[in-house]
């Protein structure tokens, strides 16, 4: 048997044994999952209480890789840091590229590199804020790891969740990812400056977001040209 075949057989054995074990411990796995979700929610409540006690406005920004979360935060920081003390917690797999970009606009940044985890959770945020004197901040942004799936598993204890999609992701992106739209307060449809060139049906994206969550505020922006950034800040209560 060749090395390659041996490796393949060993991989199949590994997968099968995992599946067999799953039946045995299924109940335990479900119990553990429930406990983790409950702990996350309790911790998120505690975080939110700390933010409120210190009069901090807080926002969690989710969206796919390349949707423009960091670009929007650059624009937001550019406008807000003259008046408000701003902390941005940046979640990424690795590097502090995003944090470095935002820091140029006078916001304090903290990088979390999640390695293989695809979303931030309340525990990560709690670890950071317990080391911080929250009286030093007026507004806290949490930029989640870029994807439209995993962040729906964990609330982080912010006032509002903002979901960012861009028209380059296609007009179906909203209806294909309902969960995050359901649990967000503001939907930002970014890169609107490319609308004519791409011919994306933005009206459909807006209608989809409203269908999924009638309460959601939808706004189109361009982080590149600055279009509607002031309106977005208004929606956020600034």
């Amino acid at each position: 048997m060749s090395d390659k075949e041996e490796r393949e057989i060993s991989r199949i054995k590994e997968v099968e044994s995992t599946n067999l074990a799953r039946d045995d411990i299924r109940e335990l796995v479900i119990e553990t999952k429930k406990a983790v979700e409950k702990d996350n929610d309790l911790l998120a409540n505690k975080i939110h209480r700390s933010f409120l006690d210190n009069n901090i406005k807080s926002f969690d920004i989710v969206g796919a890789i390349g949707a423009g979360k960091t670009a929007l935060l650059e624009k937001i920081a550019e406008k807000l840091t003259a008046k408000f003390r701003m902390l941005v917690i940046c979640g990424d797999i690795t590097t502090r590229v995003d944090a470095d970009r935002i820091e140029k606009y006078n916001a304090e940044t903290i990088q979390i590199n999640t390695g293989r985890e695809c979303a931030l959770n309340a525990y990560h945020i709690h670890q950071i804020i317990k080391n911080k004197d929250l009286q030093n901040y007026d507004v806290i942004f949490i930029e989640n790891v870029g994807n439209l799936i995993c962040p729906s598993e964990f609330v982080l204890g912010t006032d509002k969740r903002i979901i960012v999609v861009s028209i380059t992701e296609g007009e179906w992106v909203v209806e294909k990812h309902p969960m995050l739209f359901k649990m967000s307060d503001i939907a930002v449809i970014n890169k609107i400056d490319l609308k004519e060139r791409l011919g994306t049906n933005v009206e459909k994206m807006i209608a989809d977001a409203k269908n999924i969550n009638p309460e959601i505020e939808v706004i189109t922006t361009s982080a590149k040209t600055g279009e509607n950034i002031d309106k977005l800040l208004e929606l956020m209560g600034f």
């Binding site: 797999i93 502090r96 903290i110 990088q111 979390i112 590199n113 293989r116 985890e117 990560h124 950071i128």
Partner: peptide, 16 residues
């Protein structure tokens, strides 16, 4: 301060 080293391997989670 903002030092966060990269670890190539099992990719653990780092908070700087």
């Amino acid at each position: 301060k903002n030092r966060v080293d990269n670890y190539i391997g099992d990719y653990p989670t780092f908070i700087e």
